[in-house]
């Protein structure tokens, strides 16, 4: 071995490309953005016509809460969202399962679902008003249809992705058909169904607002529409903040369900 060769450390080149959870960064971005807007509106280089002052929006929210108007707007909105998406999601899961399990259902219904999926459901609202009335019925129907199609697609995709080896195992042990579906296919499809639910419920919130903008006295959508037509930016933004909070809340709820039901995963 030749002597006196210089020893050097091998340079590290394996870093990066791996997302790491960083706590608080998301909140910091929000806070900085709000502070900049607050500063800009106070200093005057953001005009009052462009953006409202965040502190004013906050004050509007507090006022909304104190006057009890928040509850009287949220209650009908949440009821519509819960009832409508419950109908849409349960029908969607049932139909998605049927498509995943039966070849005839797949052949017959997949084209239909593909045809329904890209229709902007809001365009059907006038039709739903005729079919189900101007009251709650049309709003339920709109939200139900809007959450239904993405749930169907997510569910049958999830069923298709269930490990065929596990199903074959079930068959080889002579399990009943209902056992194979209930104990192997459904739990195996659950992760896909739940991630589809995130998308469906976000669409549900969008449609909720749209429905409330077309003929509702109370509800977040009606509140935003009123504020918009009066060009009351503080109230408009207060409504938007409530919607964002609703979205975050729904996503957090699904996260909680996932943690509970999918403990076996990680």
């Amino acid at each position: 071995m030749p002597e006196a060769q210089a020893a050097r450390a091998v340079p590290f080149r394996g870093g990066g490309f791996r997302p790491v959870a960083k706590r608080g960064i998301g909140l910091a971005v929000f806070a900085v953005l709000l502070l900049v807007i607050e500063w800009g509106t106070r200093a005057g280089w953001i005009s009052n016509l462009t953006l409202p002052r965040p502190s004013d929006v906050g004050a509007t929210l507090v006022e909304l809460w104190q006057s009890g108007m928040l509850v009287s707007h949220m209650t009908p909105s949440l009821t519509r969202l819960v009832v409508g998406s419950l109908m849409g999601v349960s029908a969607g899961i049932a139909l998605g399962l049927a498509i995943g399990l039966f070849s005839y259902a797949r052949a017959g219904l997949v084209p239909l679902v593909s045809a329904l999926f890209p229709i902007p459901k809001i365009a059907l609202l006038p039709l739903f008003v005729i079919w189900f009335g101007i009251d709650e019925g049309s709003k339920y129907a709109l939200i139900a249809l809007g959450t239904f199609t993405p749930t169907v697609v997510a569910t049958f995709g999830a069923v298709d992705n269930v490990d065929r080896g596990l199903i074959r195992m079930g068959q080889s042990f002579g399990l009943r058909w209902t056992s194979i579906v209930g104990k192997i296919v459904l739990p195996g499809a659950l992760p896909g169904i739940l991630s589809g639910l995130r998308v469906s419920l976000a669409i549900g919130i969008i449609l909720l607002v749209a429905a409330e903008m077309l003929g509702a006295e109370h509800g977040i959508g009606a509140y935003i529409l009123q504020a918009g037509s009066l060009y009351d930016l503080e109230r408009l933004f207060a409504g938007v903040v409530i919607l964002s909070a609703l979205g975050v809340l729904v996503s957090w709820g699904i996260g909680l369900i996932e943690k509970r039901l999918l403990r076996w995963r990680s």
């Binding site: 195992m169 042990f173 399990l175 056992s179 104990k183 739990p187 999918l262 995963r265």
Partner: peptide, 29 residues
């Protein structure tokens, strides 16, 4: 209970069931 019974190369265990649950699965019917 099941005259012809397989042991698979990829184990074919249900990841959401415990060891006992996986064994119990084939007895439940």
């Amino acid at each position: 209970l099941n005259p012809l019974t397989y042991v698979f190369q990829d184990f074919a265990l249900l990841p959401w069931r415990s060891v006992a649950g996986n064994v119990s699965l084939v007895l439940e019917d």
